[in-house]
Design a protein around this nucleic acid. Structure first.
Length: 427
RNA sequence: GCGGGGUUGCCCUAGCCUGGUAGGGGGCAGGCCUGCUAAGCCUGUGGUCCAUCGGGCCGCGCGGGUUCAAAUCCCGCACCCCGCGCCA
């Protein structure tokens, strides 16, 4: 959520931001917001004047009573005023609701380094690590490899849970767990605190962390309960400190969350949905940080470095892109994606890293104070970054580390987490 | 799931029975005093709106209700603590 004061004082900045994002239609709702906010403030001031008058009457009744005088005239005067107050406050609240409604729908302000562009094609490459594998045979996709090795059962997954669900089997389950343990140990060494969050959360904290359209397109709702299945550990991690105030010396607070992720993937038609790439359920180790506003850009780069190191240790060729205005999403001020090479010679997203600045913190009311005993100074910044999404990482390992005989070699760093297994092969 | 207790400002706490401007302590910030330090004393402390000084409104877990007037009375809900029950 943006600061309403910023919108009042610098509407041109916000308007320009919406244009850059290609949210032309939102420029209009911004103008509506400003008009509604003006009207809200006018009605608020008017209501406050009436309430002030009303308080005077109430107080005069108390003193008249003490003197034993009649209070009837004051009571009827008060009743008249009450009617006016109720009417004005009803209108005031209607405008306030309109203001909040729009405010919750405006995207975050972009960082100046975000490239302007439309869709994925507008993303700008900033780094490449490694090269495409030099195969002496025609590489095949991970689903084919995994099915040949009897490590994935997609037919039964579909039978039992529907499209987008798989049974993982045997060594692929071990690989999933190995990736999680590898990433967890890595992040702990980097000074992160390990957290397993709740896998469901209530609506109010959920509204604090995400775009409202996600409630239709992304999250599963638990029927009959005020609970949603988490789409990523980022969400419960961000909401963990809702309505709290950090002490400046405790920041940055870096958390590594491990959890399954549940996503409806509404509107995924036409996108690449093969095998492990786009599923309704997968496991992820997530980096998350709360930090001071002045540090968030450093922390953002810091987490990016961690993610790149992870894929380097796994010997996975990838590219880093600065995600453009048309592809970045509402919550982030800046985002890097890591795109992984796949066997069809296409690079696909394996993780992303977003600085959300104070956008989530304002919605969640997470602040910081300079010293114990002082009042809060401002909102913290939040940064979230995929450490390892096991599904897409397994996919990349299968495709990049496949061999001509249909087996797959396990990256060295994972072997100790795989009970010594060095290859995926048919048993 | 049942019973009891609780939720007041940055923190702790009084006020609730018996409705009438939320009091005290601590912390923090600023000031006074002081040769220096400590102590002491004074002022301030959340959100928001209008405005030149300044002033108003809101805020006692959340939402309703009663009343001229609600932290206080009534109803509903959430969360926390204790005990009981059930349970991997």
């Amino acid at each position: 959520m943006l600061d309403i004061k910023l919108i009042r004082e610098h509407p041109d900045v916000v308007r320009e931001n919406l244009r850059k994002r290609g949210n032309g239609e939102k420029v209009q709702i911004l103008d509506e917001l400003i008009a509604h906010d003006n009207e809200w403030r006018r009605l608020l001031t008017e209501a406050n004047k009436l309430r002030h008058e009303r308080r005077g009457i109430t107080n005069s009744i108390a003193s008249l009573k003490k003197e034993g005088k009649s209070i009837q005239a004051q009571i009827s005067k008060g009743r008249m005023l009450d009617k006016e107050i109720v009417a004005i406050e009803k209108r005031r609240d209607e405008y306030k609701e309109k203001v909040d409604h729009i405010l919750m729908r405006l995207p975050n302000l972009l960082h100046e380094s975000v490239p302007v562009g439309e869709g994925e094609s507008g993303n700008v490459e900033v780094r490449v690590w490694g090269k495409p594998p030099d195969f002496s045979f025609t590489p095949v996709n991970h689903l084919e490899i995994a099915k040949n090795l009897e490590l994935i059962d997609d037919k039964r997954g579909a039978k039992v849970a529907g499209h987008g669900f798989l049974y993982l089997r045997d060594d692929l389950v071990l690989l999933d767990l190995a990736l999680q343990r590898f990433a967890i140990d890595f992040m702990i060494k980097k000074g992160f605190n390990l957290v397993e969050p709740p896998f469901m959360m209530k609506r109010r904290p959920y509204e604090g962390v995400t775009d409202l359209s996600d409630f239709e397109n992304v999250m599963y709702k638990v029927e009959g309960e005020d609970l949603y299945m988490i789409a990523t550990a980022e969400h419960p991690l961000a909401a963990m400190y809702m309505d709290e105030v950090f002490l400046e010396e405790d920041l940055p607070l870096k958390l590594v969350g491990v959890s399954p992720c549940f996503r409806k993937e509404v509107g995924a038609h036409g996108k690449y949905t093969k095998g492990l790439f786009r599923m309704h359920q997968f496991n992820k180790v997530e980096q998350f940080a709360f930090c001071l506003p002045e540090n968030s850009w450093d922390v953002h780069e810091d987490l990016q470095g961690n993610a790149e190191e992870l894929y380097q240790e796994l010997q996975l060729h990838h590219k880093v892109v600065n995600v453009c205005t048309g592809d970045i999403g509402a919550v982030a001020a800046k985002r890097y994606d890591i795109n992984i090479w796949m066997a069809d010679d296409v690079y696909r997203e394996i993780g992303s890293n977003s600085n959300c600045t104070d956008y989530q913190a304002r919605r969640l009311n997470i602040r910081y104070r300079e010293k114990e005993g002082q009042s809060p100074k401002g909102f913290v910044h939040t940064v979230n970054n995929t450490g390892i999404a096991t599904s897409r990482t397994m996919m990349a390992i299968l495709e990049q580390h496949q061999k001509s005989d249909g087996t797959v070699s396990i990256p060295d760093v994972l072997v100790k987490y795989m009970s010594g297994i060095r290859n995926l092969k048919l048993h």
